[in-house]
Amino acid sequence: MSCSAHPHVEHHGTALVTEARGVLTDAGEQWTDMRARVFDALANRDAPASAYDIAETLSASEGRRVAANSVYRILDLFVRTNLANRIESANAYLVNSHPGCRHDCIFLICDHCGKAEHVDDDRLTHSLREAADKAGFSDVRPVVELRGICAACK
């Protein structure tokens, strides 16, 4: 679903988990205990996390080793179903706080603290798609990453 025609709702806490579970099950997938734990670990991070970061967090909290490969598969599912976004340059993931809306990704990434913010600008990404179309490309998926210093680190 595209949200360019209406403002989307940013979900947090239990509302985010409820929305994510609904989006995943609507996509024909199951909301398993392991998927819930991975989602929770990702949602509770202040900065983007790698599969290894999430596996380490889960391993510590569960007292048993959680394989990064298992986490990767879940994170890939989350990206496919719009529950998370992948920051390409860092091979890291960020929870999508409005999983019911599909937008192209624009990330603002802080070079000091590593925090990333996902913003939506459908006009900008539409222009990128048009440029790609003129160059003969199809099925373009714009992912824009802007690096700089966040307001908290200034």
Results as ranks from 00 to 15, higher is better:
Asp122Gln: 08
Thr125Gly: 08
Asn85Pro: 10
Asp40Met: 14
Thr14Arg: 14
Leu146Tyr: 00
Phe39Ala: 04
Gly136Cys: 04
Val23Gln: 13
Ser61Leu: 03
Glu56Met: 12
Ala51Met: 03
Leu16Phe: 05
Met34Pro: 04
Asn91Gly: 08
Asn69Ser: 11
Asp133Phe: 12
Asp133Thr: 13
Ala15Ser: 13
Ser89Met: 01
His8Ile: 13
Gln30Leu: 15
Ala152Gln: 04
Ala49Gly: 05
Asp40Glu: 14
Ala27Val: 11
Ala116Glu: 00
Glu29Cys: 08
Glu56Gly: 09
Phe78Lys: 00
Ala132Leu: 11
Met1Cys: 10
Arg102Cys: 06
Leu58Cys: 01
Ser89Val: 04
Gly22Trp: 09
Glu19Met: 12
Gly114His: 03
Arg73Asn: 05
His6Asn: 14
Phe107Tyr: 03
His98Gln: 02
Arg86Thr: 03
Asp122Arg: 11
His8Val: 15
Ala135Leu: 09
Leu124Gly: 07
His6Asp: 14
Ala84Gln: 01
Ser97Cys: 11
Ala131His: 10
Glu88Cys: 11
Arg129Asp: 05
Ala27Thr: 02
Asn69Phe: 13
Ile74Glu: 07
Ser61Gln: 08
Val9Gly: 08
Ser138Cys: 07
Gly114Pro: 07
Ser138Arg: 09
Asp40Phe: 12
Gly22Glu: 15
Thr25Cys: 08
Glu56Lys: 12
Glu88Val: 12
Leu77Asn: 07
Ala152Arg: 06
Ser50Asn: 06
Leu128Ala: 05
His118Gln: 12
Cys153Gln: 08
Ser61Met: 03
Arg37Pro: 12
Ser89Asn: 02
Pro7Val: 14
Val79Leu: 01
Gly100Leu: 07
Cys153Asn: 00
Pro48Asp: 03
Glu145Arg: 04
Cys105Glu: 15
Ala47Val: 05
Ala15Thr: 07
Asp111Met: 15
Leu42Phe: 07
Glu130Cys: 04
Arg64Gln: 07
Val38Asp: 03
Leu128Thr: 03
Leu94Thr: 02
Gly22Ser: 14
Val119Cys: 04
Arg147Asp: 10
Val17Ile: 14
Thr81Ser: 11
Arg147Lys: 11
Ser50Gln: 03
Cys150Ile: 00
Ser61Gly: 01
Ser59Gln: 06
Ala51Glu: 08
His6Lys: 13
Leu75Lys: 01
Ala92Thr: 02
Ala131Glu: 13
Trp31Ser: 04
His112Ser: 13
